[in-house]
Design a binder for these strands. Structure first.
Lengths: 342, 342
DNA sequence: GGCGGCCGTGAAAGCGCTCTCACCAGGGGC
DNA sequence: GCCCCTGGTGAGAGCGCTTTCACGGCCGCC
C-alpha cells in the first residue's frame, strides 16, 4: 500500500508522509542540514529510496534561484570547430569537470551574429548560473555583451578589450614561446623563424612575443621570419612553404600550434628538408592526438588544456558560491616536451 | 519612476502592473493565447520591452512540467571523441538544430560506467524533456536503461537490442554499401575488398552487408577480402596494408568511412599502388573536412549527418508535443559522390 | 426588448520546493 | 526552583508562473 494517493512522480510531501516527518525536515535531510536527528535522517533516507524520489529541479530552482546549470560558450567561426581537434578536447574537458561538480553543461556554439543574439538572450534569460566563455578573437562582441550581464563568467585565455573585472584562466603563452625558442637557440640554430597563429588571438600574439623576446628580432626580422598559419593544418603548411621560399637558409622554426606544425612538417618534407637535421621544429600544445604521432615526433610546448578547463570550472563554482577567489586571473605554466623534431 | 518597488529582475507581476492588466492577461500575451485584445497585447508587449522582462524559466517549468531542454548523449569510448571529426560535426549539427527550435542542449559525454550511472540519474531526474542518443556499440547499457525511463528518446542509427518501441533516424547504410560496390563493379574491377568499421556497430555491419550483397561474396571471401579498420585513420591504414599483403591482386576497395579511407590511401601510397589506376577506392560519409581534400579526392557515399540530426530533432520535438509521428523509424537515403579515387 | 452565447478579463489556486519563524522539550546555571 | 539556552521539529509563507473558473459586457438573434 502506497502512501501516495496520486499518480506521477513522488514529491517531497510523499517522502515526508512515508517517513512520518514534516516536509521541512525531509527537505533538511535532502540538503544535509546539520540539525536533524539520526532517526529522522534515516527514516527520510529510507523513504527516498523506497519511493525512488527525485527532487523536482524546477521547484528547487524557483526558490533557490539556482539552476544548477552552466553555459559553455564557444565563439568561433564555423570551420574551426570541425577541423581543430582542440575543440573536441575542450568540450570533453568541460563536460568532465562540470559533471564531476554535478552541474549540467549547456553547450552554446556561436558562429554568426544571429547565434550571438540568441546566446545573449539565453544568458540573460536566467537559464544558467554562470558561463565558461571561449571567445579569443579580436572584435568578438560576446565579452562586451557578457560583462553587462549579472552573470559570473570565466574566460579561457585573454579576450580582447578591457580586462578590468574579468575572470580568466590563461596559459603562459609568452613564456612557452620563450621556452621553445630558447631550446632552438641552445641547439645552436641561427636562423629561427616562426609560424604564428592568427594575430587576432591573444594566445597567438603572446607566443610570437615569446619568440621575439628570445630571438631579439627587429621589426624587419619579424616581417621576414614569421608567417601567419591561422592555427590550421593547411595554414601551417602554406606558411612553412612561404617561409622556406623567403628564407632558404632557415634552420629552425617555432610553430605556434601542433596542428600547424603537422602541416609545417609536411611542407618541409615536400621541400626536401630533413627534420631536425636541416630544420628543427618546435610546436605548441602537446596535443595528445598529434604531437606524439607526427614524423618525426614533435618537440613541443606543453599546455594542459584539461587543467585549464578544470581551473575555469573551479573558479566559476567559487564565484557561484560567492566564495572569495584568490585572483581574478590565473596564468598556468607551460613546459617544453622534447621529442624528435628539435 | 519605475513600477517595480523591489529590486532584481522584473516579474510578470511588474509587467502586468505597467501594462495595466492582470498577471493572467500578461501571461496570455507571452504565450500568444488567441483570446487577447489587440490593445492588451500591445500594452503588454510594450511593458515587456520597457522593463527588459525575461520570464523565469524555473517558475514556468514548475507549472508546465516542461524544462525546455533536451539532452544529447554520446556513449562512446574516450579516444574516439577526439580523433573522429564526425563527432564535432554531430555536436555542431545538434547545437544548431536545437537552437533553431529554441530548446537548450545539455551535452552528456559517457565514457565510463560511472558516467553511465550519472547520465541515467540525470535523465531520470527530470532535468530535460527528452534525449537524443548516440550509442552505436553492441553491449552498451544506455539504450536498455533509457527505455525504462518515461522520457522520449530518439536514437541516431540502430542501437543494439530489441528495436520495439524505439524511435530512431538511420541512414541507409546497406544501400550505400551497395552503391559504392556497384560503382566499383561498373568500373570493371574484379577483386574488390572492403575495409570495414568495427562490427559491434550496426552501421559498420550494414555497410559490409551492402558490399557483400553487391559482390555476392562467400563466407571465405569475407574472411579474405575484408578487414576491420575500427573507424579510425590509423585502423584504416593498417587494415589496408593487411588486405594488400593478403590479396596482392586487389584492384578496388570499399572503405566504410572517409577517415579510414584517408588512412587507406596512405597505405596504398606506401605500397606503391596508384589510385585509382591500380586500386580504386570508395569511402563513406562524404565528410566535408576529409573527402574533398585527400589525394586523390575521394569518391565516397554521401550521408547527410546534419540532415540526420535535424530529423532526430524534429522527431523528438514532435514526440514532446505529443503529436503523431509518421513512423518510429526513419531511414535516410545515401548517394554516391564521384571524385578522383574511383 | 429579452435572452443566449461569446469574448476578453481578473481572481485565485496551485505547481514542489526552501527557509524563516515559532514552538517544545530538556538540560544546565544561578 | 526558575530561567535561559539549545537542538530538533513543524506550520506556513512564498518563489514566479500557468490555467481554471467565474464574471461582466456586448453582440446578434428571435
Amino acid at each position: 500500500m502506497s502512501v501516495q494517493s496520486h499518480p506521477g512522480r513522488p514529491t517531497l510531501e510523499d517522502v515526508a508522509a512515508k517517513a512520518g516527518v514534516s516536509r521541512a525536515t525531509a527537505s533538511r535531510v535532502l540538503n544535509s542540514s546539520p540539525r536533524v536527528s539520526p532517526e529522522a535522517q534515516e527514516a527520510v533516507t529510507a523513504a527516498v529510496t523506497a519511493l525512488g524520489y527525485q527532487p523536482n529541479q524546477a521547484a528547487r530552482a524557483l526558490v533557490t534561484r539556482r539552476t544548477g546549470a552552466v553555459a559553455v560558450v564557444f565563439s568561433e567561426p564555423e570551420p574551426k570547430i570541425f577541423a581543430d581537434p582542440h575543440f573536441a578536447w575542450l568540450i570533453r574537458a568541460a563536460a568532465r569537470s562540470l559533471a564531476d561538480a554535478d552541474v549540467q553543461m549547456v553547450l552554446l556554439l556561436v558562429h554568426s551574429p544571429e547565434d550571438m543574439a540568441r546566446a545573449r538572450r539565453f544568458l540573460a534569460g536566467g537559464h544558467v548560473d554562470g558561463a565558461l566563455v571561449f571567445a579569443p578573437h579580436k572584435g568578438d562582441q560576446l565579452p562586451a555583451a557578457a560583462r553587462k550581464l549579472p552573470l559570473p563568467v570565466v574566460y579561457a585565455g585573454r579576450p580582447w578589450g578591457p580586462l578590468r573585472g574579468l575572470h580568466l584562466v590563461d596559459h603562459d603563452n609568452e613564456g612557452g614561446g620563450v621556452l621553445a625558442t630558447e631550446h632552438l637557440i641552445a641547439l645552436g640554430r641561427k636562423r629561427i623563424g616562426s609560424v604564428t597563429g592568427p594575430l587576432d588571438e591573444h594566445s597567438a600574439v603572446d607566443r610570437l612575443a615569446g619568440w621575439r623576446a628570445a630571438t631579439g628580432a627587429s621589426d624587419e626580422d619579424v616581417a621576414l621570419l614569421t608567417e601567419d598559419g591561422g592555427f590550421s593544418r593547411e595554414g601551417g603548411k602554406r606558411a612553412m612553404a612561404a617561409l622556406l621560399a623567403r628564407v632558404p637558409d632557415l634552420d629552425a622554426v617555432f610553430v605556434a600550434s601542433d596542428l600547424m606544425a603537422d602541416g609545417a612538417l609536411e611542407a618541409l618534407r615536400a621541400a626536401g628538408r630533413r627534420v631536425p637535421e636541416d630544420v628543427a621544429v618546435v610546436g605548441f600544445d602537446d596535443h595528445p592526438a598529434i604531437a606524439p604521432h607526427t614524423t618525426p615526433p614533435l618537440t613541443t610546448v606543453r599546455q594542459d588544456t584539461g587543467d585549464q578547463v578544470k581551473h575555469m570550472v573551479t573558479h566559476l563554482l567559487r564565484l557561484l558560491r560567492e566564495e572569495p577567489v584568490r585572483a581574478r586571473r590565473e596564468v598556468l605554466p607551460t613546459a617544453l616536451v622534447t621529442r624528435g623534431s628539435a
